[in-house]
């Protein structure tokens, strides 16, 4: 009986021993997932520049800042919810919460504050439509993807990928106050790019995901089915990425870049499909993962250049 009491007391002491206020500004910055944020800023910038209406540079900067901070807030809330599985997976075990540098409460407060602030400022200083879309993006990433889908279905990143695809549409709405087919096309490109990108990563990190109990496709359906799905999504993605040039939204430079890099993407996806065992399989998946980042960057960079330098 006595030992039960002491064990209980020790547990209580341990629970209250979480040291808040130990974090440095860098730890809070890490909660914002800066690498993901940089991709969000870049794709949002393209949406902003491609929008037909002129927007004052200060307003454009404010819109980009709010979108970036909103994305960071969603990342922080994702780290708050996923702290338990982050501690198990080697890729994420050094994040601020599992490493013990920030408490879950601090992370939650930080994420909620930034989310409310980014949406509020975007609504007040830019326009209501873009603020509503940003709020929906944060909600979709945190509630639909992180809390609901991530641990319940292997289609988690397919549906959840929509939240990562929204930033150019939010930026377009910030610049023009409306939506049209072009920003939806940009969203569709990122949406269909997400599964091959993340499943390539999951192929060589399957053990990590399995240990954490995350039902990624390679864990639930196996490597072969994942390779088939990667190829199918890539077959759909490549013509979709070329389509802005075909329907007149983009120029010759984009047509050339999207065709050449699309061929590269398809070639690497076929390689992943063919090489199924040993080091060759891991190398093929790593190459596809790395190239997919370059692919998306080149597509959006070309759209950006075409918008900034007319006639390219």
């Amino acid at each position: 009986m006595m030992s039960d009491v002491s064990v209980s007391l020790n547990k209580t002491a341990g629970a209250s021993d979480i040291a808040g206020g130990m974090a440095s500004p860098g730890d809070f910055l890490a909660l914002l997932k800066p690498r993901v944020m940089s991709l969000v800023i870049f794709t949002a910038l393209v949406g902003l520049v491609r929008a037909p209406d002129h927007v004052h540079p200060v307003i454009a900067f404010t819109a980009l800042l709010c979108i970036a901070v909103g994305a960071g807030a969603a990342g922080a809330l994702n780290m708050w919810w996923d702290a338990d599985i982050d501690a198990i997976m080697s890729r994420t075990s050094r994040r601020p919460i599992p490493a013990g540098r920030i408490t879950p409460g601090e992370c939650l407060a930080f994420g909620l504050t930034l989310a409310c602030f980014s949406v509020g400022v975007l609504g007040l200083l830019v326009n209501v439509l873009s603020a509503a879309l940003l709020a929906f993006t944060i909600f979709f990433y945190v509630v639909i993807y992180t809390i609901w889908l991530k641990r319940s279905t292997p289609q988690n990143i397919v549906i959840g990928g929509a939240s990562g695809a929204f930033p150019p549409m939010v930026a377009w709405a910030a610049a023009s106050g409306s939506l049209s087919l072009e920003p939806i096309l940009l969203v569709a490109i990122i949406f269909f790019w997400t599964p091959p990108h993340f499943w390539a990563l999951a192929l060589y990190r399957a053990d990590d995901y399995a240990r954490a109990g995350v039902p990624m496709l390679p864990v639930t359906a196996g490597g072969d089915e994942t390779r088939r799905q990667i190829l199918l999504y890539t077959l759909f993605l490549v013509p979709l990425a070329i389509s802005p040039a075909l329907i007149g939204y983009a120029g010759i430079a984009y047509a050339v870049v999207s065709t050449v890099t699309g061929a590269g993407m398809l070639w690497l996806a076929i390689n992943v499909y063919r090489k199924r065992t040993g080091d060759d399989a891991v190398r093929a998946a790593r190459k596809l993962f790395g190239f997919s980042i370059l692919y998306l960057f080149l597509l959006f960079a070309t759209l950006l250049v075409e918008a900034v330098i007319p006639g390219v």
Partner: peptide, 12 residues
């Protein structure tokens, strides 16, 4: 739950 960084002392 919380782990202090190596070589780091907690508030006392």
């Amino acid at each position: 739950m919380s782990v202090a960084k190596p070589g780091q002392k907690r508030a006392t």
